[in-house]
């Protein structure tokens, strides 16, 4: 499996009382990889991250981070990892600089090293001019970049970022992802959770979580190939028209409605836009071939998972 694995998880399970938040999850993450963890709210992403950071003990299974068993020696893991929790968790009443000073001290950095590293990181995340401002007065995007800087103070080998771009505007998302890629280029392994599917395209590999289980794990293209074989079409019908005419056609694999529009997946080579127009008749307002995206993968995975859960 190529380079060494820095995160190895086998049969990981975490229960809260009678509720199982994470169930039999196994995967490994290679050094230098951007590993995305996708899933709806409550899928068990944060719980998994907290176990990997040594904040929660697993109920069952093993997790090794940077070669250390997190259940056995959570303290040793802490020096190798940086963590940005889902909820903003720096001090809103301290300045950006003071926040870095505090967390640097908590990581045991000496004063001089800390000052230099702090300046370097503030410049890197674009906060040099605003370093003396009270954190609570910074806009959301800047706060998230400051939190990333705080997580990187001690030069961790692995970064755990739990929904780092939630509630942030699109431009700020882009600049945040540029920082993630920069870190990955320097050899840092990034484990990032999100429920924004467009962001997931930036990941080297993606794990899909649903109801505490890891349902799929592959590169974005690999996921599309294996879960969405065939071709995708985007259809828009005039109101009150039904798509039933298509549903019974041989070669149609799945029809998902997305508001007034539909996403149609068919076996490769059996349909083209003209044929579809002919089949739909005057009901067709718009018919075009599209590339499947991870949203489609996600819907497919969740649908399959539900199908399995029923019996």
């Amino acid at each position: 499996m190529g380079p060494e694995a820095v995160i190895e998880v086998a049969g990981l399970t975490r229960r809260f009382g009678s509720f199982t938040a994470v169930q039999q999850v196994s995967f490994s993450v290679r050094a230098g990889e951007i590993f995305g963890f996708l899933g709806a709210n409550g899928a068990g992403k944060s719980t998994t991250i907290r176990i990997l950071c040594g904040l929660l003990a697993p109920s069952e299974g093993h997790a090794c981070v940077a070669g250390i068993d997190v259940a056995r020696d959570p303290e040793a893991v802490k020096r190798s990892i940086g963590y940005m929790s889902q909820k903003f968790s720096l001090y809103l009443d301290l300045t950006a600089e003071e926040n870095l000073e505090f967390f640097g001290g908590a990581y045991g950095l000496g004063r001089r090293a800390l000052r230099q590293r702090g300046r370097e990181l503030l410049a890197r995340v674009g906060l040099r001019e605003r370093s003396a401002e009270i954190t609570g007065r910074l806009p959301g995007g800047m706060r998230q970049r400051l939190a990333l800087a705080a997580a990187m103070l001690h030069r961790p080998r692995i970064l755990f970022l739990d929904e780092p771009t939630s509630g942030v505007d699109p431009r700020a998302r882009q600049s945040f992802w540029a920082l993630i890629r920069e870190a990955a280029r320097e050899g840092v392994t990034v484990f990032v959770t999100t429920h924004a599917m467009d962001e997931a395209e930036f990941c080297d590999r993606i794990g899909l979580m649903a109801d505490g289980r890891l349902r799929a794990l592959d590169t974005p293209d690999g996921l599309k190939r294996s879960f969405l074989p065939g071709e995708m079409f985007h259809l828009e019908l005039s109101p009150d028209r039904s798509i039933d005419a298509l549903a019974s056609q041989p070669g149609v694999l799945r029809i998902e409605s997305a508001g007034a529009a539909y996403r149609l997946r068919v076996e490769a080579g059996r349909f083209d836009p003209e044929k579809l127009r002919a089949l739909l008749g005057p009901a067709a307002v718009r018919v075009e071939r599209v590339e499947p995206d991870l949203e489609d993968v996600f819907l497919e995975v969740v649908t399959q998972a539900r199908g399995e859960a029923v019996p």
Binding site: C53, G54, L55, E75, K78, R79, I81, G82, Y83, S85, K87, F88, S89, L90, Y91, L92, F103, A106, Y107, G108, A150
Partner: peptide, 13 residues
């Protein structure tokens, strides 16, 4: 309550 404790707990402090 604010979550800052969680951030502290991932440091070796």
């Amino acid at each position: 309550e604010l979550g800052t404790l969680e951030q502290i707990l991932v440091t070796p402090l």
